[in-house]
Design a protein around this nucleic acid. Structure first.
Lengths: 332, 332
DNA sequence: CTGAAAGCGCTTACAG
DNA sequence: CTGAAAGCGCTTACAG
């Protein structure tokens, strides 16, 4: 049988209120009764019923995660599991639990959010991605419910977010290639509505124009997915008209796809770079230069921001930038 | 403001009890009041407070997932994300939510389980792996709390589990190799305390002896992890004394590591096989034969079993075998 | 068919 | 410093 506060009270010869106060470490309880109650608490292996507690406190200490199960394959991407771990590790340390829900589309996403909010299930929501003009972010803002986003939102007003500096990471990467002598660099991206897609593209453009190179929009290809096939298709399109010496992509899987095309066509000496530093089991032919985004750090930080807010902690910043790292595997 | 059953009752001019009964679709309510109440329910956008409901029903409709965050790297393995998805998809369809917790070791694992159980947070627990003489399974059995396991437990008495037929999958794979003319086949496994490790090893041994080959224990290597480095080390050990024509492994990452060693040593024409059919971005040098285990199906099925039990459904079987598929990429 | 009452296991203002 | 009481938002046996 589960033991309740009443059982403890009876055994310790005090009232339930007193037991509750001892548990809450209320300062007005005498050391003597504190000790006595603590003893029976131990003896009976008492554990508070969090559901009852939630009902009165109106807090569940649960964070809800909305995972888009879309066809862009983004969340089959290996980095994602590290995000989950990062979130959980911070949350557990601070007494929060994590709940997750897959949703197939925007409609379902909104539905689950309503459910999370109005059934009183969660105290806050974590979003795993930010789109341009993001309908979910708007919705959450309108509902005025605590949430935090992985990815810099378009309009950052009063919203909590965590991200890499995608602009800077791509900017530096392109600079790195230029320093190696590359003058003709193409760009392959996934769906452009993701904010990180936009930021990486900006970094690419800016790096080129800062050195006086002309940005040729025909060398910029966006595909509908973040997968190997999309990379393959994009690379094919580029080489129909051009022969760049390097291609930057916004995701390792795109890079792998591009590589596949080059290999099939027996095109050599083109440098391909990716993003996310996905494990490629390096025994295989060759690995690519990539940007390590510290997925676990992203998860950890987003949980940190949201929990700080839920505890009404003073925050200096409404966002955290997680450092990236250029993993150089260029052939030179 | 959140709207409660009282608000609805007042507006619809009935008692709270009646509103509750309408929501529960109690047959003794007249169609007329049913209609009336449903209308105001809609108008006020009423959503039940699941916490309050849980307090009286003593059910939360939440399933708890314990994820070992051990150093064997097993749960950084890509197949794992598909398991999560499978669990969630079935659960959501049936009105359950999923909560997950990482735990560093057995002690933490037990702690979190106690918390899940005695704080009344979850209705059932899902375990992602079964060990030989598994202390967590024992513990859960002793607590007599509903749970289900991915992986066949050593003692299946009255416990719910889901698994591939690991014995059969490996048995058939080795047979397949033998049919291709291989006579000298070595074995590389990860930690042997996992039940699937044992089953796969048995399949290997049985396939050999069924054909009259002698099983040589020196050609069976177990390493402490399921990662590339472990595979590399194991392969090195094997080739110190032998030169098998094929090596079967219990995980693709082990296979990749073995492959790496062979490549470095310039050893050709050794067939390596894996398990899990991890994506290798096939543009790379060559892909390996592997067993697809249908990770999503494993997750889906384990949720199915556990939820059936929680709803006291009649069960014909206390387990589900998820079909595997040999993905043949052998060079012949 | 419907309502008033009790209760799920806690917390907390009120009173002493 | 401690207890009795009310209340969080539901469900459900009891009564009519």
């Amino acid at each position: 049988m589960k033991v309740t506060i009443k059982d403890v009270a009876k055994k310790a010869n005090v009232s339930p209120s007193t037991v509750s106060r001892v548990i809450a470490n209320n300062p007005r309880i005498s050391d003597k009764t504190k000790e006595k109650v603590h003893k029976t608490l131990k003896e009976l292996h008492y554990r508070p019923n969090v559901i009852a507690r939630s009902l009165v406190s109106n807090k569940t200490n649960i964070l809800g995660l909305i995972i888009p199960n879309s066809n862009e394959n983004l969340f089959k991407n290996p980095f994602f599991i590290d995000v989950l771990r990062g979130i959980s590790i911070y949350a557990q340390k601070h007494g929060y639990h994590i709940m997750y829900t897959y949703s197939k589309n925007e409609k379902e996403e909104k539905e689950y959010i309503q459910e999370y909010i109005y059934s009183n299930l969660v105290d806050g929501i974590i979003l795993l991605t930010a789109l341009e003009n993001d309908p979910i972010i708007k919705h959450l803002k309108k509902e005025d419910f605590p949430f935090a986003v992985i990815g810099r939102p378009e309009n950052t007003d009063s919203i909590l977010w965590v991200d890499n500096d995608n602009f800077k990471a791509m900017y530096e990467l392109v600079n790195h290639l230029i320093a190696q002598g590359h003058k003709d660099i193409a760009f392959i991206g996934g769906p452009s509505e993701f904010m990180f897609s936009k930021d990486r593209l900006k970094g690419y453009k800016m790096a080129l124009s800062a050195k006086g190179y002309i940005v040729n929009d025909d060398k910029i290809i966006h595909e509908s997915g973040f997968d190997v096939n999309s990379g393959y298709r994009a690379c094919k399109k580029i080489f129909k008209n051009f022969s760049p010496t390097a291609i930057v992509t916004t995701d390792d899987l795109l890079a792998f796809g591009a590589n596949k095309f080059l290999k099939e066509e027996n095109i050599k000496e083109v440098e391909i770079t990716g993003f996310n530093n996905v494990p490629t089991y390096e025994f295989q032919s060759h690995s690519i230069t990539s940007i390590d985004i510290d997925s676990e750090g992203l998860g950890y930080s987003v949980a940190k921001l949201l929990i700080a807010k839920l505890n009404n902690q003073e925050m200096i910043n409404n966002h955290i930038i997680v450092e990236t790292k250029l993993i150089d595997r260029t052939s030179k």
